[in-house]
């Protein structure tokens, strides 16, 4: 009986061990060896179909840069991309940059307002 309970505890412990995962992508303050120093846009208020450059400065080794926009479009890759939005996407849009390497990551957001057409 005791042996069975012990087995259940060991199994539960293993499940908990593998179920817990550190959420590296949610950090906005920088963790470990990766840190975003700045994320900036040449313009933060734009007319539709007018593009602007967005630049990230980060520190760390072997960095990779990922970009996403909740509305509008990004073009390019790496430390600098260009952003624009069409008529579908007027309003305040959020662009997220995630910088990562094999062990850590850091994310920052920037908001850009797209004026009506």
């Amino acid at each position: 009986m005791k042996k069975r309970i012990l087995h259940i505890f060991i199994l539960a412990g293993l499940i908990l061990l593998f179920a817990c995962k550190k959420d590296n992508d949610s950090s906005s303050d920088g963790t470990g060896e990766v840190e975003i120093i700045s994320l900036s846009a040449a313009d933060t208020v734009l007319n539709v179909w007018v593009n602007t450059k967005i630049t990230v400065v980060a520190k760390g080794d072997g960095l990779e840069y990922s970009w996403e926009a909740d509305h509008g479009e990004l073009n390019g890759s790496g430390v600098q991309v260009e952003y624009m939005a069409g008529t579908c996407c007027t309003g305040i849009n959020t662009i997220t940059c995630t910088v990562s390497n094999n062990t850590n990551s850091d994310s920052k957001k920037i908001k850009i307002r797209i004026l009506p057409f």
């Binding site: 990779e64 479009e73 990004l74 991309v81």
Partner: peptide, 11 residues
């Protein structure tokens, strides 16, 4: 979906 680590627009 992403291309070169840049997420494609919803369209």
């Amino acid at each position: 979906q992403e291309v070169n680590n840049v997420k494609l627009p919803i369209s």
